[in-house]
C-alpha cells in the first residue's frame, strides 16, 4: 500500500458516493447511463470472486464488499426505484460492441486459463471501457449536469492515481502487472478529453457542462 493507491481508492469511493447521493437527493437518475452502472456492477462481481478464495487484508475485504454493495445500490436506484426518471432513449450505447471483444480478449490474454483468472481478466478489460456508455450519452445529449461531471472527474482521478501507484510499485518493488497496467492506461486515456472540458467549462464556468 502506498499513498497513490490509497488516494486512488478513496477517489473511487468518493466518485461512487457522489453518484449515489446525486440520484438519492434529486430522486432522479436523469443524465446517468444505467448501462455504465450495470457494467461496473459486473466488473466488481467478476473481479471480487476471490473474496471466497483468498484473504488479503481487512482493508481489501471491506473495500471490496463496499464497492459491490454501492454498485448494486446504484443499479437498483436507476432501474427500480427511480426508473421513471431514467432516460433510456439516450442510453443507447450497444453493449455487445464492448462485451464481445472484451470476452474474446479475456480468453486469449490472461495469466492462467482458469475460470477465476479469466473472469478477473474480463473484469479488468471491461472496467477500461465501462464508462463509454456514459461518455456516449453526454456526447449524444451535448450536456451534463455539473454533479455528473464531478463524478466523472473523481473516477478519472482514481485511474490517474493508479498509474502513479504502478510507477511507484515498479520502482520500489519491481512490481509490474501487464494486463492491469495496459488496460489502466487505455482507460485513463478515455478521461483526458473529459478532463480538459471539465477544467475549461465546469471549473471556470458554472452549472451544466455543454459541449462545443
Amino acid at each position: 500500500m502506498n499513498i497513490f493507491r490509497l488516494a486512488g481508492d478513496v477517489c473511487h469511493l468518493v466518485a461512487i458516493i457522489i453518484l449515489l447521493l446525486k440520484i438519492w437527493r434529486s430522486r432522479s437518475c436523469a443524465g446517468i447511463s444505467g448501462k455504465s452502472q450495470v457494467l461496473f456492477a459486473i466488473v466488481f462481481t467478476t473481479r471480487y470472486l476471490d473474496l471466497f478464495t483468498v484473504f488479503i487484508s481487512p482493508y481489501n475485504t471491506i473495500m471490496k464488499v463496499v464497492f459491490l454493495a454501492l454498485s448494486y445500490a446504484t443499479v437498483y436506484l436507476i432501474y427500480m426505484r427511480f426508473r421513471n426518471t431514467f432516460n433510456s432513449e439516450n442510453d443507447s450505447f450497444r453493449l455487445e460492441f464492448l462485451l464481445v471483444p472484451v470476452i474474446g480478449l479475456s480468453f486469449l490474454e490472461n495469466y492462467a486459463f482458469t475460470p477465476l483468472e479469466i473472469l478477473w481478466t474480463f473484469s479488468i478489460f471491461l472496467e477500461s471501457v465501462a464508462i463509454m456508455p456514459q461518455l456516449f450519452m453526454i456526447t449524444k445529449t451535448g450536456e451534463a449536469e455539473s454533479i455528473t461531471t464531478h463524478y466523472l472527474f473523481f473516477l478519472g482521478l482514481y485511474r490517474a492515481l493508479y498509474i502513479a501507484n504502478w510507477v511507484w510499485r515498479y520502482h520500489t518493488e519491481g512490481f509490474f502487472d501487464q494486463i492491469a497496467v495496459v488496460s489502466g492506461v487505455v482507460q485513463t486515456i478515455f478521461y483526458i478529453d473529459f478532463f480538459y472540458l471539465y477544467v475549461t467549462k465546469v471549473l471556470r464556468g458554472r452549472g451544466k457542462m455543454t459541449l462545443p
Binding site: R5, H12, D50, Y162, E173, F176, D177, Q178, A180
Partner: peptide, 10 residues
C-alpha cells in the same frame, strides 16, 4: 512480480 500478486489491488 506478475500475475497472482496483483490481486491485492481493487
Amino acid at each position: 512480480i506478475e500475475g497472482r500478486e496483483t490481486k491485492d489491488e481493487l
